[in-house]
Amino acid sequence: MNLYLDCEFNGFGGELISMALVDEEGHYFYEVLDCPQPMAWVAVNVMPILAQASIPFTEFQNKLGLFLNEYDEIHVIADWAEDLSLFTRSLVLGAGRAMRIPPLTLELWTGTIRFPSQVPHNALSDAEALADSYRLQ
């Protein structure tokens, strides 16, 4: 199953704030993590549009694992390398421990986003725009 990924994070190289994965049928995972000290740009452009309360990282990982294990195979598509990095780091549970998930492949898509996000800088809206644009290639 293709899963379209977008993440919001606290500035370049910063910690994960929110992650969305949207499948080909419109089912999605969207969760928000706490960001106690957002950079100024993030505070103005990302934090006000998260649209839900934050959860602890362990709960985030539990929910992500449940979502991913709904599929037999997973092909994650993102249009930004840092999104893939934040996704794969989210699969690490601790030293020498990773989430058990179905077979996984990753794709860094360099196509053109033809459908603008309805709510720019909201991971769920951005992932939906990526899904729509990818399918038209």
Rank of each mutant, 00 (worst) to 15 (best):
1 M>N: 03
1 M>V: 03
2 N>C: 06
3 L>E: 03
4 Y>S: 01
5 L>F: 06
6 D>Y: 00
7 C>K: 03
7 C>E: 07
9 F>Q: 11
12 F>T: 13
14 G>M: 03
14 G>A: 07
15 E>M: 08
15 E>W: 04
16 L>C: 14
17 I>A: 07
18 S>Q: 09
18 S>T: 12
19 M>V: 10
19 M>H: 08
20 A>E: 08
22 V>M: 03
22 V>G: 03
23 D>S: 09
24 E>K: 13
25 E>H: 07
25 E>L: 03
25 E>S: 08
26 G>T: 07
29 F>V: 01
32 V>A: 02
32 V>C: 04
33 L>N: 11
36 P>F: 05
36 P>A: 02
36 P>D: 07
37 Q>M: 12
37 Q>R: 14
39 M>H: 15
39 M>S: 13
40 A>P: 10
42 V>L: 06
42 V>F: 06
43 A>W: 08
43 A>Q: 15
44 V>P: 00
44 V>M: 11
46 V>K: 04
46 V>E: 12
47 M>W: 12
48 P>Q: 08
48 P>C: 09
49 I>E: 03
51 A>W: 05
53 A>V: 08
54 S>Q: 13
58 T>D: 15
58 T>Y: 02
59 E>Y: 11
59 E>N: 12
60 F>Y: 15
60 F>D: 09
63 K>T: 11
64 L>A: 06
65 G>N: 12
66 L>W: 11
69 N>H: 06
70 E>I: 04
74 I>Q: 00
74 I>R: 00
74 I>G: 00
76 V>C: 04
77 I>V: 15
77 I>D: 04
77 I>T: 11
78 A>K: 02
78 A>T: 13
79 D>L: 05
80 W>F: 15
81 A>H: 14
81 A>K: 14
82 E>A: 11
83 D>K: 03
84 L>D: 01
84 L>H: 01
88 T>D: 07
88 T>L: 09
88 T>K: 05
89 R>T: 10
89 R>A: 09
90 S>N: 06
91 L>S: 08
91 L>M: 15
92 V>L: 08
95 A>N: 11
96 G>Q: 11
97 R>Y: 10
100 R>Y: 08
100 R>P: 01
101 I>N: 10
101 I>L: 15
102 P>A: 05
102 P>N: 07
102 P>D: 11
103 P>G: 05
104 L>S: 09
104 L>C: 10
105 T>G: 06
105 T>L: 01
106 L>D: 13
108 L>N: 14
110 T>P: 00
112 T>V: 10
112 T>C: 02
113 I>Y: 02
114 R>E: 09
114 R>Y: 03
114 R>S: 13
116 P>Q: 11
116 P>H: 03
116 P>K: 07
117 S>C: 06
118 Q>T: 15
119 V>L: 13
119 V>M: 14
119 V>A: 13
119 V>E: 14
119 V>K: 15
120 P>V: 07
122 N>M: 00
123 A>I: 03
123 A>S: 15
124 L>K: 04
125 S>F: 04
126 D>E: 07
127 A>Q: 01
128 E>F: 01
129 A>T: 05
129 A>G: 04
130 L>H: 01
130 L>W: 01
130 L>P: 07
131 A>L: 05
131 A>K: 14
131 A>N: 05
132 D>F: 04
132 D>G: 02
132 D>L: 14
133 S>K: 06
134 Y>S: 00
134 Y>E: 01
134 Y>M: 00
134 Y>R: 00
135 R>L: 13
137 Q>L: 02
